[in-house]
Write a protein that binds this DNA or RNA. Structure first.
Lengths: 238, 238
DNA sequence: CTAATCAGAATTTGATCATATTTTCATGAC
DNA sequence: GTCATGAAAATATGATCAAATTCTGATTAG
């Protein structure tokens, strides 16, 4: 069958078997990225029927994906069985800044203790792509590569619970981040990754944590200011 | 249909609201409480088929509930589509202690700023039930009432994102908490709620946060020590 | 005469289940 | 010990039912 095969299969590492990745995971990954990288605007409705058409998948795996994303804060129940991409409030962004500061800096400490030369090389490669995206003015690429940098650091830290929290935080500010970047371009975006990399090479946990905290706070403050200003979000659906 | 009707439906004394609460939410709540209050042991397998028999519900709502609990850290994928109640490692409990300390104390600060006389009365009532459970030596009641106290504080704080994180943390240490309490009884359990209540009455955010942090650390350290000791978890399934 | 409001029909969407299709694990034959 | 076979469990689909929103049109107030 497969029909139009809209799911795209993503990356199938460890392949040989075609249907190795369950459909509900594919739908999850697809929808997750859509939220994380701002393909869905804050306030936008997400319907099961719409996803059936969009992905070509059946109803059950889509329901599962939506449930999962809802638990993770990427989606939100809005009263009568309506699901939307959440809109950030100022209170919410304050909590997100707090969480990201504390969790991300602790992850950075863990990472500094465990990092290998291979990991550092991988991080430097990703960071060069972040730089490239910034100079190109490619917002979408910046968002993806910047996330990839942080995600790699989380993976090195090897603390699954903290990583879950951090990922949930990303899902919650992702859509707004996209709106802000779309307005301001890539020029004013933070990139303290070089400082962090130096600290990682020296295996200096405290310095790594400080660098990452700085990076986090700078980025999150941009969203916060845009939120206070209000104009950036005037066209999002309420 | 309905057959044995094992779901219990809560309260529906023949009134008009028959299916008001969706089945997937009922299954979720039931399974959530089972994990939170230690009715399922760490390492225990959770199967879809088993839940169909246990709850009498269909397959789809059960899948949704399992997906949701998995995102929240209450359940864990164990390789080949096997789902189990996670077992805590020492590394994990360290991260949970860190998270609970930071998140719970911040929630306490928020709560102190927003609390009303009605809220304080409700908290005092719950706390008296905690005391009662301790003197009775009723582990199950202690776990439920103690959670109710903290949950009420979260609700007062009115910070949904932090509350999600806190709830996820509870789900992750719940099963182990039960094992530890089952061994040690209710006598050595922490109860800094009185101190917290005094601080709340004075609307002293810092003192409230300190009291709750103390409460949290004392409780979590018991789990940590039991984990290091090892004997308490010797009979849990690996 | 226009515009606003409300009732009821129609359409859309979500919830649940029964069923078909894999996949895995265990058991036993070679 | 390895491979085949069968039972059990999970994945995925589509059908069916229920609820809600939207649409339509008529009645009425301004």
């Amino acid at each position: 069958m497969e029909g139009t095969g809209k799911l795209g299969q993503g990356f199938d590492h460890s392949d040989e078997n075609a249907t190795r990745v369950p459909v509900h995971q594919q739908v999850y990954a697809q929808l997750r990225d859509a939220v994380l990288f701002g393909e869905l605007a804050p306030g936008q409705a997400v319907t099961i029927q719409g996803l059936i058409e969009r992905t070509g998948a059946g109803m059950t795996p889509i329901r599962e994906a939506i449930r999962r994303l809802t638990s993770e804060g990427a989606l939100e129940f809005r009263g009568n069985r309506r699901v939307v991409v959440p809109m950030l409030t100022v209170d919410a962004i304050d909590d997100l800044i707090f969480l990201r500061e504390t969790v991300e800096s602790r992850l950075a400490e863990h990472a500094a203790e465990k990092i290998t030369a291979t990991d550092i090389a991988a991080l430097e490669k990703i960071d060069s792509q972040v730089d490239e995206a910034i100079t190109r003015g490619d917002v979408s690429a910046y968002l993806r590569q910047n996330f990839a940098f942080h995600a790699k650091l989380y993976a090195v830290a090897n603390a699954p619970i903290l990583m879950d929290v951090a990922n949930s935080v990303w899902l919650r500010f992702g859509p707004s981040m996209r709106v802000v970047c779309g307005r301001m371009g890539t020029q004013n975006l933070p990139d303290n990754h070089k400082t962090a990399l130096d600290a990682l090479k020296a295996k200096d946990a405290q310095a790594t944590a400080d660098a990452m905290r700085e990076d986090v706070v700078q980025g999150m403050e941009q969203i916060r200011e845009a939120l206070l200003d209000g104009t950036a979000f005037s066209d999002t659906i309420d």
